[in-house]
Amino acid sequence: MELTQTKPHYEILDGLRGVAAITVVFFHVFEIFSNGDHTKQIINHGYLAVDFFFMLSGFVISYAYDNRWNTMTLKDFLIRRLVRLQPMIIIGSLIGASLFYFQYSPDLGWGEIAETPIWKVILVMMIGMTVFPVGKSLDIRGWGEMHPLNGPSWSLFYEYIANIVYALILRRLSKLVLIILMIVAAGFTIHLAFTNPNGDIIGGWSIDDSTQLKIGFTRLAFPFIAGIVLAKTLKLKFTPKAFFTTSVLLVAVLAFPRLGGTTAHWQNALYECFALMIVFPLIIWLAAGGKVIGKTANKVCKFLGDISYPLYITHFPIAYVFYAWAVNGKNTMETSWLQGLLTVVVSIMIAYVSMKCYDIPVRKWLAAKLITKK
């Protein structure tokens, strides 16, 4: 987190970001074995980690920047966010391009992946480094993703939009207006969950379908605004063993089995709205009121916080390779659990190396060059 020196640092929120990121990796590793059936997905609600990230982002940005606008311009703010987010977006796109020909797409198959011209892969990589989405003509994987080489970059596209809207509009609004906007956004989220054919809020990663864009903005609006409201209104109360309690609660929410089966979708829709609107704010409240006690706990929280963003933005190309191995060898979850676990471990290692050898040095260099100390 990028906080002012005069404010306390919420180490537990950093740690929770890492817990959520690791859960996302497990979610994606298991995903290949569900064959598109949402009821069979292990770590069933792992995709809600993105919504949790949006809520954390709103909370942290409001907490860190609300009282700095008398000494900070819009340009200063945007530069700070670029320095924080952009380096890893670049490396994620580069890793995605490097591993592309070792991967697999259920919609295209090995042959069409192998026949994709390298100039097109490089072009998609370069566009991906800017976080701007690509359209159907550059969908080299065939999944309709706005970032075919590194799927999770879609959420960073919305993250940038949220940052810009915060700087231009949301920071200027009163608590009452923000609460009203939050309630309106909650209404859109509820409508999405209960009208989506699958009874969930999955989606947002494509620009080829207006429905996907609507899902993306809906998933962004409520948690981000709710995070800002939490930062402005929370009255913290000390929470004993907060990191353990909130970590277990977060993993339980993300791993909770699908409700309602293939027919009673309203049950799952109700669960997701409850998780997003009740449990996630509760987790943030409990975590913000907690303290990390002991050197070991501090190191764990710091490690998890440090790798959280690098892990989230670099792991999917590695998961793509695992998908290729699993499908090509006709492997089941029972016969490939060890390779799946290895995929998680390798993803964490690559995230750590990227963070230590690239992200931190590059951000320090950029900060020294671009950020004016106030």
Rank of each mutant, 00 (worst) to 15 (best):
K40I: 02
L3N: 10
I161L: 15
F54A: 05
F30I: 04
W154K: 04
S336I: 06
F33E: 04
V344C: 12
K175W: 00
A269W: 09
L213F: 09
L156G: 00
F194N: 11
T211P: 00
L85D: 06
K75Y: 12
V327P: 00
V229T: 08
P223G: 07
F157I: 06
K175V: 15
C301I: 05
G329W: 00
T130L: 08
Y160I: 15
I90N: 01
V124Y: 00
R81M: 09
A326S: 15
V345L: 15
T211H: 11
I307Q: 06
S210F: 12
A242Q: 04
F322Q: 10
I42R: 07
S34D: 12
G142P: 13
V124D: 01
T245I: 15
I12W: 03
L78K: 01
V300S: 03
T245G: 11
F26Q: 02
I225R: 02
K7Y: 09
A297E: 13
P117N: 09
C273H: 01
F77Y: 14
I348Q: 03
D208Y: 00
K175D: 12
L250C: 11
I122L: 15
T73D: 03
I284K: 03
S206E: 08
V25P: 05
D208P: 00
T296S: 08
I278H: 01
I161F: 14
L220W: 08
T4R: 13
D359A: 11
E159G: 13
P8T: 12
T246K: 03
V251Y: 07
S62C: 14
A255G: 05
L138G: 06
I32D: 02
L99V: 12
Y358R: 08
A297S: 14
K302M: 09
W285P: 00
Y320S: 07
N67H: 12
G109L: 06
V19P: 01
Y158C: 08
P106K: 09
K175E: 14
L48P: 04
V19K: 02
V321T: 13
F280H: 07
G144R: 09
T246H: 02
F27Y: 15
V321F: 09
F102L: 15
W205H: 13
L311M: 13
A186T: 12
S34M: 10
L176A: 12
L370E: 04
I278F: 15
R81N: 06
I169F: 15
R363L: 08
H38Q: 11
A20T: 03
N35V: 07
M72K: 14
I22N: 05
I207H: 04
R17L: 10
Y166A: 05
T343K: 03
D139W: 09
V346C: 06
Y309G: 08
D14Q: 08
I278D: 02
G290H: 12
I228W: 02
L270P: 01
V253M: 14
R219E: 14
T71W: 00
G96N: 07
I12C: 05
V19Q: 03
D37K: 12
G92V: 11
W69E: 05
W110P: 00
L304A: 07
A324Q: 05
T211G: 08
G290A: 10
I201T: 15
F274W: 12
I61Q: 04
V165A: 13
L342G: 10
K295D: 13
Q41P: 02
E334M: 10
F52P: 06
T246Y: 02
I201K: 02
W69A: 04
W285Q: 11
T218W: 01
K330S: 11
